[in-house]
Design a protein around this nucleic acid. Structure first.
Length: 422
RNA sequence: GGAGAGAUACCCAAGCAGGUUGAAGGGGACGGUUUGCUAAACCGUUAGUAGGAGCAAUCCUAGCGAGGGUUCGAAUCCCUCUCUCUCCGCCA
């Protein structure tokens, strides 16, 4: 969430920032509630001070066997008054919090203004787009032809947007997970985490999925658990309500998890293939940094994700998202888009965001800049490194052969123990 | 699921028949004295945090797992919840 002091003192700045996301909001209710809250706080706190002082006097008198009934009577009234004001404050704070939790992050100055993806900026491209001497097939045809993707049985046992991987397909999925984790842990300096896939409500609020996007999440009963939509949620919340040592920073974590998304607003989109599933695998990168380092760390994180595509030999481009296309919590976001020959388009395969202190403030993740100094909020960052299902799909399409087989990218051969899938 | 025990400051731990105790005592850490140097001994310091008022010095409020309640006053009494540990049952 945004700093309440920023909203209070520089509301125009907040409104201007949100406009760069294509949003128009009014802060009038917030500002007047905030003002009222502080007035009532002054009142109740001075009453409490009086009560504290007088109650001690009561104790003193009773110890000396003196009468204190006049003081007690007075404090009964004071107590009633305090109760009323505190209840008013509680209601105001609940509303203030509700408002604050639904305001998205402000875009970084470098983020292009615009309401939708047409305002995104391509930053760079990598890789040679392969010229086919036959018509490249979509990955679902290739996968079904090879017997490694089973969409029918996926929908039989679960429903739409579920797929079964079989044989060499299942093994390829696992190889991709291992390859990516090995790359990030051995070469990029990330520590591997294997978190729970079910988290509590506080986590979902901490990273920004709640309260606004509950309909996109899978909720699990019994209990009040959510299936994680990304490893970002459990891994970022590892340090919720903690004060980190400055020497620990930056922290680099990588985690493989399954991810679960309701895809509530995506009816009819990407219904074929494995591009948009209710359950998919992903290797995630998460960083905690000092505020002054987050910009450089963000660029580095993007390069780490790009390295995966480069090693796999998959052509891609890097896109800087405009304000309107960024996620709720992000201050700046690069998407990596991989080339799909069958559709002749680049499709998102990684999203790398700098959240600055937005998530850290929600999740209360701080660090102490120097011994004895006041704690400050860290900056959090994360990015896919990469989405496994989409990577598998991209490999099938980019490495397909005329006979329906698929050549295994060089770097995966030791993991798979084969050069071709046929 | 059944039966117990517990949660107090950086750590351990007392207080729990309500009243100058936001908290004894240890340990640790930091500072000092002593010392050729270490160690030891001795002395001292050690809630952090959040919120609010004020130009400021500073002051106030909250806080003993969380949330409610009783009371003039709650770490202490009552209720609800969460987590941890032990035993039993079940289970990958």
């Amino acid at each position: 969430m945004l700093d309440i002091r920023l909203v209070r003192n520089e509301p125009e700045q907040v409104i201007a920032g949100l406009r760069r996301r294509g949003l128009t909001i009014s802060l009038d209710e917030f500002l007047s509630l905030d003002e009222t809250r502080r007035q009532k706080l002054v009142e109740t706190e001075s009453l409490k001070n009086r009560r504290n002082v007088v109650s001690k006097e009561v104790g003193r008198r009773k110890a000396h066997n003196e009468d204190a009934s006049d003081l007690i009577r007075e404090m009964q009234e004071v107590g009633e008054r305090i109760k009323v004001i505190d209840e008013e404050i509680r209601a105001i704070e609940a509303r203030l919090n509700e408002i604050l939790l639904t305001i998205p992050n402000l875009p970084d100055a470098s983020v292009p203004e615009g309401p939708d993806e047409t305002y995104n900026q391509e930053v760079r491209r990598w890789g040679e787009i392969r010229v086919f001497d036959f018509t490249p097939k979509p990955h679902w045809d290739i996968g079904e032809g090879l017997g490694i993707l089973d969409f029918e049985r996926g929908s039989k046992i679960s429903g739409a947007r579920f797929t079964v991987l079989k044989g060499k397909g299942a093994k390829l999925e696992r190889a991709l997970v291992n390859f990516m984790l090995d790359l990030h842990t051995k070469e990029h300096g990330y520590e591997e985490i294997f978190p729970p896939f079910l988290v509590n409500r506080d986590c979902m609020v901490g990273t920004g999925q709640l309260p606004k996007f509950e309909e996109d999440m899978f909720r699990v009963t019994p209990g009040d658990y959510f299936l994680i939509p990304t490893a970002e949620v459990p891994v970022t919340n590892l340090h919720r309500d903690e004060i980190l040592d400055v020497e620990q920073l930056p922290l680099y974590y990588t985690a493989y998890t399954a991810c679960f998304r309701a895809e509530a607003g995506a009816a009819g989109r990407d219904t074929r293939g494995v591009i948009r599933q209710h359950q998919f695998n992903k290797v995630e990168l998460v960083k905690f940094t000092k505020p002054e380092d987050s910009e450089a760390e963000h660029e580095k994180l993007v390069r780490n994700a790009e390295t995966v595509l480069q090693r796999l030999g998959l052509p891609y481009r890097v896109v800087l998202l405009c304000g309107g296309d960024m996620g709720f919590s992000a201050a700046k976001c690069y998407d990596l888009e991989v080339w799909f020959p069958s559709s002749g388009t680049y499709r998102e395969i990684s999203s790398c965001s700098n959240f600055k202190d937005f998530q850290a403030r929600r999740a209360n993740i701080r660090y102490r800049p120097a011994p004895g100094a006041k704690p400050e909020f860290v900056h959090t960052l994360n990015g896919s490194g990469l989405a496994i299902g989409r990577t598998l799909a991209a490999i099938l399409e980019n490495y397909q052969n005329a006979d329906g087989s698929v050549t295994v990218p060089e770097v995966l051969r030791e993991y798979l123990g084969m050069e071709r899938i046929d």
